[in-house]
């Protein structure tokens, strides 16, 4: 079997807060192969963004990251010094952020910012870097690419800026690209375009991609693998088709009920919601984090939660198949 490009085991992220420690990510495992797209889904605050920042080594100074293993193509990221991380970032792994409006430096031209990573990491000259920038701007569908190089971020719309961000992330042809809700801040009409673009480019360059989103419609279209995150834990992971067809964790099914599906959801019917709120992540959570909102919660949910399913499609629940069949029978 192919060795995964990125392999993470037991990643935890702790944030010291006033009254104790906020366990934002509680021991998650995932693997990502070259050219594969992993979608991490979950509510706000479930730890998706922190997980991606942890891989990039971009967590704040006060945030503690521990992991049994974080292996990126043979480099142990848990032990990598800042210099090693710096050489990986932008060159072999890059990131696209949620906020295109504020993620570009207002003081420098698009050209300066696009070429920066390439000039930092590769032995290329200014001219070659600019040529590459033009090439990528064209690739991300920006017209008059040449003249854009001398423009400043404030002269571009949000959609254009996010295209620039994508082009910027691709400058060094990274092996891994992490996109943290890349379309959330954009106009609905161009969200799909941007995602399509990102997905196509990923395929074309054979990049592995971690796409963080809470839009399950997006996941259905682009994901190879899905990881569902809840309160800092991965409650269900598996190939996209399996997770969508046989969603095993009650939370995954709850999420899926929240989105309308063409042909499945009846016109005029109410969309699902998951009642309740995410538990506080400060301190330890006893048993299953979802039990306070789960319709199938029982006393045993307070105890240790087993991991079920296969290595490919796993979920954490005390109920066999997470009560999926029982639920389908009543539906």
């Amino acid at each position: 079997m192919e060795k995964p490009l990125l392999s993470v085991r037991n990643l935890t992220i702790d944030i010291p807060v006033g009254g104790g420690t906020l366990h934002a990510v509680r021991g998650i495992d995932f693997d990502l192969n070259r050219g594969e797209t992993l979608c991490i889904v979950g509510e706000s605050g479930s730890g998706k963004s922190l997980t991606s920042l942890a891989v990039m080594g971009l967590l704040g100074k006060t945030i503690r990251r521990t992991a049994d293993r974080m292996d990126f193509d043979g480099t142990d990221l848990t032990r990598a010094n800042p210099r090693t991380m710096r050489k990986l970032r932008g060159a072999r792994m890059s990131m696209i952020f949620q906020e295109p409006m504020t993620s570009l430096n207002p003081a420098y031209t698009i050209g300066d910012q696009l070429t920066e990573a390439l000039l930092l990491h590769k032995p290329v000259g200014r001219e070659a870097a600019r040529a590459r920038a033009v090439e990528l701007l064209e690739k991300v569908g920006i017209t008059a690419a040449e003249s854009r190089l001398s423009q400043y971020p404030h002269q571009l719309s949000g959609g254009l800026r996010q295209r620039v961000m994508i082009a910027m992330a691709l400058m060094c042809e990274p092996e891994l690209i992490i996109a943290d809700e890349p379309t959330t801040a954009l106009d609905v009409t161009i969200q799909a375009q941007i995602l399509r673009l990102l997905y196509d480019l990923g395929r074309e360059m054979n990049m592995a991609m971690i796409l963080i989103t809470h839009d399950l419609g997006v996941v259905a279209r682009v994901a190879d693998k899905v990881a569902v995150m809840y309160a800092g834990e991965l409650v269900e992971t598996g190939p996209a088709a399996d997770v969508f067809n046989t969603p095993s964790h009650p939370y995954t099914r709850g999420l899926l009920r929240c989105i309308p599906l063409p042909g499945k959801t009846e016109r005029g019917s109410t969309l699902g919601t998951i009642p309740g709120i995410v538990p506080s992540l400060v301190g330890d959570i006893e048993g299953c984090a979802f039990r306070t909102r789960c319709p199938y919660a029982e006393a045993a949910c307070r105890s240790e939660i087993p991991r079920q399913g296969s290595a490919g499609h796993a979920f954490r629940c005390i109920h066999e198949d997470g009560k999926r069949q029982a639920e389908e029978a009543t539906a």
Partner: peptide, 22 residues
């Protein structure tokens, strides 16, 4: 603490460059 500083770090810019240039 702004987003574009995080972007600069994500590009692998050395700390001195992040601080002074960005």
């Amino acid at each position: 603490s702004s987003d574009y500083i995080r972007t600069a770090r994500a590009k692998g810019a050395p700390e001195g460059r992040v601080l002074f240039r960005h």
